[in-house]
Design a protein around this nucleic acid. Structure first.
Length: 301
DNA sequence: CATTACCTGCAA
DNA sequence: TTGCAGGTAATG
């Protein structure tokens, strides 16, 4: 479930709640495959007694910075969530990791599908993780030129390429679809076919959709919750994701669903032309299309 | 590039 | 019963 905005909100809400606390014990760990490194006995040896200095994020990894140079890196994958619970709350069968804190509260790693992963990393391990990932799309190092360079020479389709964490860190299926709609770019276009103007629009669109999603505390389709157990609301603001057969909020054309790289892909066939340079330029202001009022408006046909 | 695997629950 | 789900890694 969680993409960059959801993990960002989780990290912020964890940081606000557990900064400075000490992990007193691993109280439950009933799905051992979630721990990728180190081996279990080392984890049980190293984690208790560690103080949490902060919680942050890199790509879709939640990073809990501990003392002595350790970092607990948690990936929520499809259905995971991290919630701080009061001392009297008991974990359910889907809560596969429970970390007890020195004030009696506990961090629950809840994960219905068991795809989530945990790593306890030393500084070298953290650096290796960092270097395996592309630039942060909301960071100052991510410029239209950087995006353009990363797409140059890639004959693969733009939409699956946006899901490649080594190309850009943090985009997932929802926000890749949303960004391409905002930018007016067809998801199947070869990445290298994007003009500099396309790259500029896509760069702005990626930032816009992620920023808006963070403002709305992420998207909750099913399992996502922030560190307080609360849902996000950005699913109420989708332009194309999961909107097949409904009217494009910009032009009224029906949104289509196709599958590429085994992922559902949603787009407006009018606003996102298959070939570049034709048809109407989509509006660039993301607020212009944010209202349902535009649904009645039609164009062409 | 496509397919399969990893898991479980839910809606069509 | 079948297909689908916010992700990623492994395999032809």
């Amino acid at each position: 479930m969680p993409e960059l905005p959801e993990v960002e909100i989780v990290a912020r809400s964890l940081d606000a709640q557990v900064r400075g606390r000490v992990i007193s014990a691993i109280e439950k760990l009933d799905w051992e495959r979630m721990v990728e490194t180190p081996d279990l006995s080392t984890l049980y040896d190293l984690l208790p007694g560690r103080q949490i200095q902060s919680a942050g994020r890199r790509a879709k990894w939640a990073l809990i910075t501990l003392d002595a140079g350790w970092t607990l890196a948690i990936h929520l994958r499809m259905s995971g969530n991290l919630v701080v619970q009061a001392a009297d709350v008991e974990p359910d069968v889907y809560t596969h990791l429970v970390l007890a804190l020195d004030d009696g509260r506990r961090i629950f790693f809840h994960d219905q599908r068991k795809f989530g992963r945990v790593r306890l990393l030393d500084p070298a391990g953290l650096q290796a993780l960092d270097q395996s990932l592309g630039p942060e799309p909301l960071g100052s190092a991510f410029t239209p030129e950087v995006l353009s360079l990363r797409l140059a020479g890639r004959r693969t389709k733009i939409k699956p390429l946006l899901l490649d964490q080594a190309v850009i860190a943090g985009l997932g299926n929802i926000y890749a679809n949303e960004a391409l709609w905002i930018a007016g770019i067809h998801p199947l276009r070869p990445a290298a076919s994007l003009s500099n103007h396309d790259s500029e629009r896509l760069h702005a669109a990626i930032r816009a959709t992620l920023t808006q999603a963070i403002i709305h505390e992420g998207s909750t389709l099913r399992n996502y919750r922030n560190g307080y157990g609360q849902r996000g609301s950005h699913q109420e603001h989708f332009f194309v994701y999961d909107r097949a057969g409904r009217a494009c909020t910009r032009c009224g054309t029906l949104i289509e669903r196709i599958v590429t790289a085994q992922r559902s892909t949603f787009f407006c066939p009018a606003c996102q032309p298959e070939t570049s340079g034709e048809q109407t330029e989509p509006v660039e202001d993301e607020h212009a299309a944010s209202s349902e009022q535009l649904q009645a408006r039609t164009r062409g046909s």
